[in-house]
């Protein structure tokens, strides 16, 4: 199609952003941050039936220094929040956070003194995954959506522009209690 057909075979044209995105998403290594019930579902999705290895993600790196993705799986208590932040800070860039389960996304059913009501109070979250606990298929769906996001994220000046645009959208967005319409 177009230019590529006129070149000799074995040459592929693409952009740096696409290549970088492809590399990053294809071997995204998760850091073990399993806390509670969601951790068990996360381990199951790394297990033989729901195999995360097909996405290059079965190596759960114990050391955050070697990990790209922090899957916050489970309820984050007030005592654990500083530890969560420290692990996040120890991860090198580029890093992404997937908050798995309702307890990590919003405090879940535990609306009380002991649980941080959403890990986005502590770390910036890239993708939220509801469920109590989410099925391994749901986790994989969230991971694939995150892969999509990574594939299409921009670099350099484009990135700064993208961040500014997103910030503008968030600043002018309606708060949830003022929204109307169906849940989706």
């Amino acid at each position: 199609m177009g230019l590529e057909e006129k070149l000799p075979s074995g040459v592929l044209l693409t952009t740096v952003e696409q290549v970088a995105g492809y590399m990053r998403k294809s071997s995204l290594w998760p850091a073990t941050f399993g806390l509670a019930c969601c951790a068990i579902e996360m381990m199951s999705s790394g297990g033989p039936r729901y195999d995360l290895g097909r996405f290059g993600m079965e190596v759960f790196r114990a050391s955050p220094r070697q990990a790209d993705l922090m899957v916050v799986a489970g309820r984050v208590s007030q005592k654990m929040a500083p530890v969560l932040r420290q692990i996040y800070d120890q991860m090198p860039n580029p890093k992404w956070v997937l908050s798995m389960g309702v307890c990590a996304s919003s405090g879940g059913m535990f609306n009380n003194y002991a649980i941080v009501q959403g890990v986005d109070h502590v770390v910036p979250v890239d993708i939220y995954l509801p469920g109590c606990p989410p099925r391994p298929e749901m986790l994989m769906d969230a991971i694939l959506k995150l892969h999509d996001q990574i594939q299409h994220s921009k670099l350099g000046a484009n990135r700064e522009r993208q961040v500014e645009e997103r910030e503008q959208i968030a600043l002018t967005a309606l708060p949830t209690s003022a929204m109307k319409g169906l849940l989706r």
Binding site: L35, G74, M80, N112
Partner: peptide, 26 residues
Amino acid sequence: VGYLHTGIEKNLEFRSWTQGVTFVTR
């Protein structure tokens, strides 16, 4: 210990007896 303390026991005091099952199960 205490890094996963969720306050389930206190939460149960604000839910009915049957709703308590959903808390206790976790």
